[in-house]
Simulated scan of single mutants.
Amino acid sequence: MLASAIDDIDANHIRDQLGIILGLDDAGFPDDLAAPFGDGLAVLITLAGAIAALAASQARHTLNPNSASLRDANAAAAAFLTAFRGGTGDAVRAAIESAIYGEGTPASRAAQLRRAIGLSVKQATSLEIMREALLAYTAAPRTRIPARTDATGKRIAATYIRNVDTRAILAGTRGHLSAAQSRMLAKALANPNLTAADADAILDGHAAALRRHRIQATLAEGIHGLAEQAKLTGWTIAQRFGALPADQRRYWHTAGDERVRHAHSQVPAMNPVGVALGDPFQTPFGPRMSPPLEWGCRCSVRLARPA
């Protein structure tokens, strides 16, 4: 169905048809994912409430799970999924444009569009660059080198080579692919027997890996931020009800191992006496209410009275 819709000369008509086939909403997000996302939001809001309640219990305060004060934590959960949803929609829209104007047959472009669903814009772009490189390689004619005997008398079997400059193809991808992607592509381009079906299998497998990585990394990042926001919410509510002393401070802690980035290790030193519950931490990236500081951050915030 996707290939049939792409095989048209009217770009606007193609966009409309693809939107209908994929069931995209106004933001470019597939409608059939709306229900799972709604379920996910409910789970995250429940998680936020549980973490806020646990934080409040540190001050011997029992948090009402229906409290309007949990609005910030609930909003953080919604914002996290909204950002993920928006990034997914942006990637689908970009992939539709590549499907309309990209290289290859309608079937090849349709397959690439299907692969892009669930990826980020950056991931979808890198996958398209890999596809273009593989297309250029598999479209090149093969030349058969007959069997021969070398100078030592060793028999060398007949082989094939591609009449294409693989170094030029790889050079065109430089700066757009990760080191792992470049190695994967270089390995594929070293195979003179690579077929279009082989290239599709490589792209399918890599798209699945990219999708898993994005979901795992985004969930880890989002839940980390949500947990820290919920902790702060629980502490703030407890203090409002007088269960937490007014002089209670928050202290930034790193994971404390060799993987801690320099910028993250600077935050405790920049806030030696901690900060009040309602104040942000000073960081090399500007004021932040709580971790994560950037992607992959493992920092956390703990509660303590000043020494």
Rank of each mutant, 00 (worst) to 15 (best):
L24H: 01
P268L: 03
T82E: 13
H264D: 12
A34G: 01
D26H: 09
A78G: 09
I14W: 00
A48V: 13
W252A: 02
G172S: 08
T105V: 10
P272A: 13
A139W: 12
N271Q: 05
V92R: 06
L244H: 00
I51R: 05
G153Y: 01
L81T: 14
T46M: 08
E228I: 10
R155Y: 04
P292N: 13
A255F: 14
I169V: 14
G118F: 11
T283F: 10
L226A: 05
Q17T: 02
G153M: 08
I20F: 15
W252P: 08
Y137G: 01
R261D: 12
Q248V: 15
G19I: 04
Q248H: 06
A307Q: 10
N163T: 03
A217E: 06
D25K: 07
L170W: 11
Q181G: 01
A48T: 07
A68R: 04
L232V: 15
A227Y: 07
R305Y: 05
V273N: 12
Q266I: 06
P292Q: 07
T152V: 09
A107R: 06
A56P: 06
A83N: 12
E258G: 10
C299N: 08
A5M: 08
A59V: 03
G38W: 00
Q123N: 14
L2G: 09
G286Q: 00
D257Q: 06
D150Q: 04
G19L: 00
D7E: 11
I6A: 05
M1D: 09
T159F: 05
L189F: 11
I20T: 13
T173N: 04
P291H: 15
A190G: 15
A91Q: 10
A94M: 14
D204P: 01
I117P: 05
L219Q: 06
N271K: 07
P280C: 12
L135Q: 08
F281A: 05
N64L: 10
I9N: 14
N12R: 09
I169S: 09
H213N: 14
T149Q: 11
Q123G: 12
G175T: 10
S98L: 02
